[in-house]
Each structure stands twice: as C-alpha cells, then as structure tokens.
Amino acid sequence: MKIASWKPATLADAVSLAALFRRVEAAAPVGLEQHADDVTTRLAALGPELGSGTRVGRDDDGDVAAYGEVAEMGEVDDVLRIRLANVVRPDTANDVRAELYQWLLGQAEQVRQVRGSAQAAVLGTRCAENDRVGHELLARHGFELVRHERDLVLALPESLPTEVLPPGLVSSPVDERYEELARLAHNEAYADSPSAIRPDQRTWPAHAIAHPRFLPDLSCLVLVEADGAENPVAGFLFALADDDTEKPTAVLHCLGSRVPWRRRGLATAMITHALRRARSAGFQQVRLRVSDTNPAALALYRKLGFVGSGRGYAVLMRRLGPDAS
C-alpha cells in the first residue's frame, strides 16, 4: 500500500491517529497512545511545532496510514533532545517508512540549525522488539540501541503492607503548588540516564498532572519536612489509568527519587501507597515499565511481586551536530 497524500497533523486528526496507533500496537508495540483524548494531548503538547513537526499520510481511500513526528524534548547539558516517531500501518510498503525517516531526519536537522550550527542534538526513537525491518532502517540511518524497555505487571493481592517513610519525610498529594518543583526533581532524578526524557516547562504538564488519564489518588510526592530545603520534593510517583486491558489496570507512569534520598525506602513506600490506593479504587492489576539499564529498579519491582508481561520495545539514539561522529 502506498501513500496518496501527506499533510501536517491537526488536532482534528486525533481519532484517526488513535485508530492507526491501535493497529500498530497490536502488531509491533512501542507504547503509543491508543485513545483519541491521549493523542489530542500529545498533539497539543507540540504547540507551534504541530504544523512543521508532523506529517500524516493517507491512502487512496483517505484513511490515515502513516504518521511522522519531530518533537523537541528540552535541552540537557547543552544538548538538545529531539523525539522522532515513525508510525506506519503494517500493510504499508517499506519504502514509505524509509521515505518518512528521511523526512524526520531532515526536519530534526532544521530544528537543530535554528539553535545554531554549533548546537549538539540527540535524536531518540522507539522500535518494537519484533520489528526487524524497522531496526534495519534505523541502523542504516546511524541509530544505535541504547536500552530495552520492559513491561512488568502485578496482580493486586488481597493484603498489602502499609507504606513506611524514613523520618523527616512526609507523603503529599500531587497538586499545582509543587508542579515546577516536581519537574525539577524529576529531571534531577533522571539526570544519570542519558536517554531519559527530561521535560521542559512547556512539555511537563502533559507528562504529569495534565495527562488525560492521570490518577491523583494513586499519585504522590515525598516531601522533606525540614524548612529551608531548596527543593522539598525528594521523590515522586505519577499514576495513570490504562483502559486497553480486560482487567481494570493502573500504570505507574513515572517514578523516581532524587540522588540524596535514594536507597532509603522511598520507592518502596510510594509504590506501596499506589498499590493500596489502586486496590481500594477497584483496580485488579498494576503495570509499570523499567529499563534493562536499571537493574536496581528491576530487582526492587520483582521483590514487590511484579513479573514480566512479555511486552517491551527498544530505544535507539543518534547524535546530530558538530561532534556527531
């Protein structure tokens, strides 16, 4: 199947894109949004880049068959991070994917050049584990594998322990008072993960409390009680609802602790808090995603009873700029 026309995406494309994403996820999952409201949030988060940074391909019948996206994800250590999405319906010809990658790389280079020819950038994208053609295309375009993301699941037991925080720390609901402090804590917590997304102020809300499936009752912050802390947020957990499973499922979407507070039981306490709230809210299972480059987190989740679901995807990256070689 070939593409009859290409146009920039608009918010009106959310329903059609959600249908495309569901079809792709069924064949080669990469963690795409599968509901129209989630896709709308994704598109809206692009802001002014929506017109120039997206491309929707339609077949001869007018159905959406391909989607490309170039999204700035903030700057860390003077390196611009750019997310690429190449989503193509399974029955689409492979040369369409190759053409779309060429467009994505060209757009990413334009984004980098706007910052100046000396600006370094890192491109990141996902590829399903079983997508051999996709991996080959990315390798030809200079992308290298940096990690695998694994999906873990826990069937909620009848009995759960009570969360216990170290002295001097207190659990708090997530609210707007701490939104910017939570973003800073998130980015600090993931600073030692070179391929992690560290949102800026514009993209952060869709990553957290503005996400359409955000679960405030399951989410929490861990705060330092002592006055005078530059950032009182020591840890954070943001949970989302997952409507794509037969069993009522909650997702531990984003979880972390700042470096000074690691290995002190914060993660265990926050997860236990979420599990207890999830069971009370009627959820039957909880999912989360973990990188194979984080063995300590994987060991903790397995200790808490999480097991592999058999789903996951690869994350690949490529550098752009004067030191790209």
Rank of each mutant, 00 (worst) to 15 (best):
Y190D: 06
P194G: 11
V79M: 00
Q107R: 14
P166L: 02
A191P: 03
D175M: 09
G134S: 09
A185N: 01
L152A: 12
E176N: 06
A206C: 04
P173V: 02
L169Q: 02
R198I: 00
A98V: 08
V87K: 07
Y190A: 03
V88L: 08
L160T: 03
D151Q: 14
L152K: 07
L156V: 12
I82T: 02
D91G: 12
I197N: 01
A206V: 13
R115D: 04
A182S: 15
Q107V: 15
E163H: 15
L181M: 14
A189P: 03
P194L: 05
L123Q: 00
P167K: 10
G116R: 05
S172P: 06
E129G: 10
R183P: 04
L152G: 07
R83K: 09
Y101S: 09
S171K: 09
I197R: 03
Y190V: 05
A85T: 11
W204R: 08
N86L: 13
E163R: 10
H211A: 11
R115L: 08
R112A: 01
L145P: 01
A208V: 09
W204A: 02
E179M: 05
D200W: 04
S193Y: 04
P205I: 11
N187T: 08
Y178R: 06
T125Y: 00
G142Q: 09
V153L: 14
G116D: 14
G134P: 03
H207I: 07
Q110L: 13
D151H: 15
V153K: 09
A93E: 15
N94Q: 13
L100Y: 00
P166V: 02
G142Y: 07
V164Q: 12
F143D: 00
V146I: 12
A93I: 10
I209V: 13
A108G: 05
A210G: 03
R183E: 10
P167M: 09
Q107T: 15
L181A: 14
N187Y: 01
A85N: 11
T125Q: 06
Q110I: 11
A185E: 09
L165D: 07
A98K: 11
Q102E: 14
V146C: 05
E158K: 13
L154Q: 09
L184D: 12
L184Y: 05
Q201K: 12
Q102W: 03
G124A: 02
I82H: 01
D131I: 07
V87G: 05
P194C: 11
V96S: 13
E176C: 05
Y178Q: 06
D192Y: 06
W103A: 06
H141N: 14
L154P: 07
R202H: 14
E129P: 01
V174F: 03
H135Q: 15
P90K: 15
L104Q: 12
Q107F: 01
Q110E: 14
A210L: 07
S159C: 04
A108R: 00
L154W: 05
R147N: 08
V164F: 02
I82R: 00
T92Q: 08
P199V: 03
R115Q: 10
A196E: 00
H141V: 01
H211P: 01
L104P: 10
E180Y: 06
H207D: 12
R112W: 01
